[in-house]
């Protein structure tokens, strides 16, 4: 007979940590960039995460929602988020200014499997707000450049004004150790110097890919996945080396509220990063 063991509960996973907004500026018309720091400096430095993980951000009086961490663990202390205004909570976040307080819990989710990516060529394909989680892994690879093979970035946006981190990525083009391709669906400015067309029009520009040696990371709006994955399969990248992050409704981030369920797994625990193989053999993923 099992004797009831007294669980000593040291941590309440539902309690956020207070964090202060250090910097905030607009990235596009409806996306803002937030740099935050946990108020407790020890916790700020101890906050360890993997690229691809997310945090729950709470705003007093509005509620809590999940957001990908856009910064890289290789630059500890500050957390960065790109947030699109879509409703109540994001609307409330948009009203906040530097020095305002928010709540942060996390990090949650599986994140990208960095160990499996070491030594490999990394092909990152991002569209729109997909840059939020993928910027983290991109910066991580660049900060640990010697641990990866080629690093290739394909980034697409609707138009130049919609391109998140436009300047940051423009500057990255100058780096010799990064193959960076940018594109916009349409150029309404007449000033755009890079490719024009959807993100898949960038694929013909790539130098020859060694598929077995390549891990591809994809994040973007739902329509993008279908077309990008076709291109990746054409390149013969193995299905389990195509990684994607998926979105689900999330209320807890810690596998209790049930909202993020897909079949019998929980996206907040076993995701949000899945391989394309997961996606085709699990029923509800896409």
């Amino acid at each position: 007979m099992k004797v009831e063991k007294k669980t000593t509960l040291t941590k309440n996973p539902f309690l956020p940590d207070p964090a202060r907004i250090v910097r905030v500026y607009p990235l596009t018309q409806d996306v803002k960039f937030f740099q935050v720091r946990l108020v407790d400096i020890n916790k700020a430095l101890a906050f360890q995460y993997h690229p691809g993980q997310f945090a729950m951000i709470s705003i007093l009086g509005a509620g809590e929602a999940p957001f990908s961490i856009s910064s890289t663990p290789s630059r500890p202390g500050l957390l960065e988020f790109c947030i699109r205004k879509t409703g109540t909570i994001t609307g409330a976040i948009f009203n906040l200014k530097e020095n305002d307080l928010i709540g942060v819990r996390g990090p949650y989710g599986n994140g990208f499997p960095i160990e499996k990516m070491l030594g490999k060529d990394i092909l990152i394909v991002m569209g729109g707000l997909g840059a939020a989680p993928l910027r983290s892994v991109l910066l991580y690879c660049l900060d640990n450049r010697d641990q990866f093979g080629r690093v290739i970035l394909l980034h697409g946006a609707k138009c130049p004004a919609e391109m998140i981190f436009c300047q940051e990525f423009q500057d990255l083009k100058k780096r010799e150790d990064l193959e960076c391709y940018l594109t916009v669906d349409t150029d309404d400015t007449g000033q755009w110097e890079d490719n024009i067309g959807v993100v898949t029009t960038l694929f013909p520009k790539l130098k020859a890919i060694n598929p077995e040696q390549t891990v591809s990371l994809v994040c973007g709006p739902p329509v993008m996945y279908k077309f990008v994955i076709q291109e990746l399969l054409k390149l013969q990248i193995p299905k389990d080396q195509i990684l994607m992050t998926l979105e689900r409704r999330m209320k807890c981030g810690v596998g209790k509220c049930g909202h993020c369920a897909i079949d019998y797994i929980y996206t907040c625990l076993d995701g949000p990063v899945f391989t394309y193989w997961d996606v085709i053999h699990m029923r509800e993923l896409i």
């Binding site: 007093l60 009086g61 509005a62 809590e64 409704r249 209320k251 209790k256 509220c257 049930g258």
Partner: peptide, 30 residues
């Protein structure tokens, strides 16, 4: 086990009760 969470602010204080309530995956917006 499903539940929802609501931030219920108090009218005369700068504070909120964070309420947890049973939810159901049969509801449309789940």
């Amino acid at each position: 086990n499903c539940y929802n969470v609501q931030d219920q602010p108090l009218l005369s204080q700068d504070a909120s009760n964070i309420q947890r309530c049973w939810d159901s995956c049969m509801l449309e917006n789940y």
